[in-house]
Design a binder for these strands. Sequence first.
DNA 1: TTCTAAAGGACTGTTTTTAGTCCAAGAGCT
DNA 2: AGCTCTTGGACTAAAAACAGTCCTTTAGAA
Lengths: 238, 238
Amino acid sequence: MQDSPFGPSYSVLRPVRGGNAFEETIEHLLQTIKLGIFAPAEKLPPERELAERLGVSRATLRDALGELQNAGYLEVQRGRYGGTYVSSSAVQRPTESRPLERAEVEDVLLFRGIIEPAAAALSAKAALTAAARQHLQQCLSELMSATPETYRPRDARFHIAIAELSGSASLVGAVAETRARLNDLLDRIPRLGTNLEHANEQHVEIAEAILKGDAVTAERVTVEHLEGTASLLRGFLA
Amino acid sequence: MQDSPFGPSYSVLRPVRGGNAFEETIEHLLQTIKLGIFAPAEKLPPERELAERLGVSRATLRDALGELQNAGYLEVQRGRYGGTYVSSSAVQRPTESRPLERAEVEDVLLFRGIIEPAAAALSAKAALTAAARQHLQQCLSELMSATPETYRPRDARFHIAIAELSGSASLVGAVAETRARLNDLLDRIPRLGTNLEHANEQHVEIAEAILKGDAVTAERVTVEHLEGTASLLRGFLA
DNA sequence: TTCTAAAGGACTGTTTTTAGTCCAAGAGCT
DNA sequence: AGCTCTTGGACTAAAAACAGTCCTTTAGAA
């Protein structure tokens, strides 16, 4: 049954799950690392807790952790006060090089172009607590001092932080997931000397607008900001 | 580890999967029925194909189908040209009555308020094929002739159709999923005599704007349209 | 030094899920 | 009437995933 472009079953009869639990767990953990949710040298929660959070058994989680460990992403220390740590060295991309697919690229960029500006506008409108403001500023300052190597995860973390300020769990989930897909795409193109200065000017502008409660500016600058990545990726489609 | 509102692991260390394959499959099928993807008396794809589509084994799928069958949602006919059919009778809600949770309600409404207007605007901007236009109009006319009983699934189908016109798979997925969550919420409140006339006027307006390519109007009317459901639900929070 | 508690490591038996194979029904064609 | 093909129905053996239990390591407290 080939998909007719419209009508019943189009795109709603998709797979119920993304693969087996083992693979999904690896994928998920790898994403949290690449998104900078767990920064290098940072400690992961204990296995028992992490397994519960991720909704898989400890055995399955351990299989996944083991795989990530001997792939160099994680380091493990036994004993009390031990734990699983993100490798401070690795996280270089393994030069995966499937070609970019136009449809996938456009889909990610389009969806991102909807949710991220909306998240920025919402955060600006939200009543922010002191803790929230501080969290945003911390992510921003970490991002400002990033090197080209550490830029991408910190950038992701900053944008996810914005979504968190909006207070919508769905939005955070959507932004994080979309960002992970975007990272996958970026991993497939050669690293260019991105214009970090310009991007960071925009980051500052966005953060300020949000903190001031200026939703219109926050949204507008975010849209402009996304253009950079968009045209970068589109450049590799031709 | 209680979730600190910000910082690492907030909302990204969520469960990798929603439950076991059996439950997920039931849930998924039930959604496609409630969303009107498969209308009453319509035939589902053969088990072998459906299983592949959903990414589960045929045994698991059959367990789920069996459950739905003796819950009265499906009817089965054996033999050639047989198949599994959506019950034309049932689909009345089992009066599930957990109380509404404010956070869940606000989250769904907010997220919906982002993606559905965006979908409408995008569709209006898209270059629509003749088949696409026809599909939209068909969904609209089915919706216009709906009775209060058949209104909700046709309404869902219409809104999903709009997302389909936008050409973005992610957006279709997001709209369908959000709509399913919304239906769950609506199932928990008593049915009121919704103002179908007013809603349908808006539906017509939206469809016309999309077909004319008037993105601004499509987006604006969609926003207004969503207000109806939003205030209906919010009314049951107090 | 010894003890303790928190962490990773390892094993076992059970349940779930799967792929694969064959059976049974039954509508339409010759 | 008989054939045929598509579909649901049923069974089996293997693999995946699970919950539960116990072992090992090790920093810090006593």
